Amino acid sequence: MEKRERIPPAGLADVRIVAASPETARQIAEVLRRCFSSTEQRSYPAGPEGGTRLHLSVDTAHAAEPARSWLAASTSASGNRAQSDEI
């Protein structure tokens, strides 16, 4: 059976960060929190080779600068294809 991914409601985005160390993942999450309202992060082991996978949801409807100006100026990427290593 194919696993179906839950699509977040409009204005929200689920973010997954995979990094070699928990500290690196937390640093990236902190940058996102400075730009967007977000949920509390959840972290998990990244796999047999080590590392950390961190998940959080961000609210793009309540973006702070500099994200607000970037979102207003950006265009959607063509080809919304998943990368080959996404799960």
Rank of each mutant, 00 (worst) to 15 (best):
M1A: 14
E2F: 11
K3G: 02
K3S: 10
E5P: 02
E5Y: 12
R6P: 05
I7T: 15
P8L: 05
P8R: 06
P9C: 03
P9R: 13
A10D: 15
G11C: 09
A13H: 02
A13F: 01
A13D: 02
I17L: 09
I17S: 08
V18Q: 14
V18P: 00
V18T: 13
A19L: 03
A19S: 12
A20V: 07
A20H: 10
A20W: 06
A20L: 09
S21L: 09
S21P: 00
P22N: 06
P22T: 01
P22M: 01
P22S: 09
E23A: 15
T24C: 03
T24V: 10
R26E: 14
R26V: 01
Q27S: 13
I28Q: 14
A29S: 13
V31R: 15
V31Y: 09
V31Q: 15
L32S: 03
L32Q: 07
L32I: 02
R33Q: 12
R33I: 00
R33D: 10
R34N: 14
C35M: 14
C35S: 15
F36P: 07
F36S: 06
S37N: 09
S37Q: 12
S37V: 06
T39L: 00
T39F: 01
E40M: 05
Q41A: 15
Q41F: 03
R42P: 00
R42K: 13
R42M: 08
S43C: 05
S43K: 03
S43F: 01
Y44S: 08
Y44F: 15
P45R: 11
P45C: 02
G47Q: 09
G47W: 02
G47F: 02
P48E: 15
P48I: 08
E49R: 14
E49N: 08
G50I: 04
G51H: 08
G51F: 09
G51N: 06
G51S: 06
G51R: 08
T52Q: 10
T52Y: 09
R53F: 00
R53A: 15
L54P: 02
L54T: 01
L54K: 02
S57F: 01
T60K: 10
T60P: 01
A61V: 00
A61I: 00
H62W: 05
A63H: 04
A64R: 14
P66L: 07
A67Q: 06
A67E: 07
R68Y: 04
R68V: 06
S69F: 02
S69G: 08
W70K: 07
W70M: 12
L71V: 04
A73T: 05
A73W: 06
A73K: 10
A73M: 06
T75G: 14
T75S: 13
T75V: 08
A77S: 10
A77T: 08
N80D: 13
N80G: 15
N80Y: 05
R81E: 13
A82S: 13
A82Y: 10
A82V: 05
S84H: 10
S84N: 07
D85T: 10
E86K: 04
E86V: 09
I87E: 15
